[in-house]
């Protein structure tokens, strides 16, 4: 506005106004509620949290001295548990991303083929995505039950395996067990996105490469994978971001245990604040996580924009 008005004045013509008077106030009225809600409920809390991270607050919600301190950050960064949690988070995210995309890609490839009942199969495969998180956690907790669970029953069918692993109490198995649950919950999303990606690859490309003499493997490597590059990037980042922030599954199934084997960063933040009443360090860690989340989101926004321009 300002720009066009000034330039109009420079050109020696009269300044111009909106053709329709409603155009002047309507946008402001429509944007206002959003700005209020986001400022009060997102921006102020986030800034408040960063402020707490520089104080010696102990119990959440209690008064704290105003003195500025970096002690929280120091204690968080020197705590070996933090680095262990980072490792657990990385394994959890990476495991989920790899598993979810592998299963999702196979499913999507199957769904691109015509077979009777494809619509029904497509619908069934979306179900894990649709189930509430708490329900998914409960079902798998029941299936992982060491004495009566179906998982151990199924394992009994495998030759030479006699043990009855206690999935959620065994430090070596708890993390993989929850990764499997997370893969199950997220792979339908990967499937739908990859399916959309596969369907956007023009048939002519396949026909052309077939005429050029490419076999099915070459066609997959030369046409399918490059065609999926953009959607794959989107899925990888979204799954990483979601896994990184996942709280419900770990909180409900292992509470970060056994022996910290599933203590991801977000779970650790929660327990610092609500179990050990170390609000300062909790918020310091939260602020660091926020930084990571901002970076991941920027990366994501970049990838989406690049794909739209292409």
């Amino acid at each position: 506005m300002a720009l066009t008005q000034t330039s109009a004045r420079v050109a020696g013509v009269r300044t111009v106004h909106y053709a329709d008077s409603q155009d002047r106030w309507l946008p402001a009225v429509m944007v206002l509620p959003f700005l209020l809600a986001i400022t009060a409920l997102v921006i102020i809390p986030l800034l408040w949290g960063i402020r707490i991270s520089f104080t010696n607050s102990r119990i959440i919600g209690r008064a704290f001295t105003e003195a500025f301190t970096l002690a929280n950050y120091q204690s968080v960064l020197t705590d070996p548990d933090t680095w262990h949690s980072l490792y657990v988070t990385a394994v959890f995210s990476l495991g989920t991303v790899i598993g979810s995309i592998a299963l999702g890609l196979v499913t999507a490839l199957v769904l691109t083929r015509a077979f009777p009942g494809r619509g029904i199969v497509r619908t069934l495969i979306i179900l894990p995505w649709a189930v509430p998180h708490v329900v998914a956690a409960l079902i798998w907790q029941w299936m992982y039950n060491p004495n009566y669970g179906v998982v151990n029953y199924a394992i009994g069918w495998i030759p030479f395996v006699t043990s009855q692993p206690n999935w959620l109490s065994d430090p070596n198995l708890a993390l993989p067990a929850i990764i499997i649950l997370n893969i199950w919950k997220t792979y339908p999303f990967a499937t739908l996105v990859l399916l959309a990606g596969l369907q956007s690859i023009p048939d002519e490309l396949y026909e052309a490469s077939e005429i050029d003499g490419a076999g099915p493997v070459r066609r997959f490597l030369d046409i399918t994978l490059p065609g999926l590059k953009h959607v794959l990037a989107i899925v990888v980042l979204l799954l990483t971001i979601w896994s990184f922030g996942n709280f419900v599954f770990i909180f409900l199934m292992t509470q970060g245990g056994p022996a910290g084997a599933t203590n991801t960063l977000v779970v650790k933040v929660y327990f610092e604040a609500f179990r050990f009443f170390r609000a300062g360090p909790a918020f310091a860690m939260g602020s660091l996580l926020l930084l990571v989340a901002v970076l991941l989101t920027l990366a994501y926004a970049f990838i989406v924009r690049r794909g739209k321009d292409a």
């Binding site: 809390p45 707490i52 918020f283 989340a293 989101t297 926004a301």
Partner: peptide, 25 residues
Amino acid sequence: EYLLLATQMFPGILLAMPMYVLFSK
């Protein structure tokens, strides 16, 4: 538009904790 995306991506706990402090006040 970035803010829209970011608020959907942030781990919920990052928002929940400070909001809890404010709501308790």
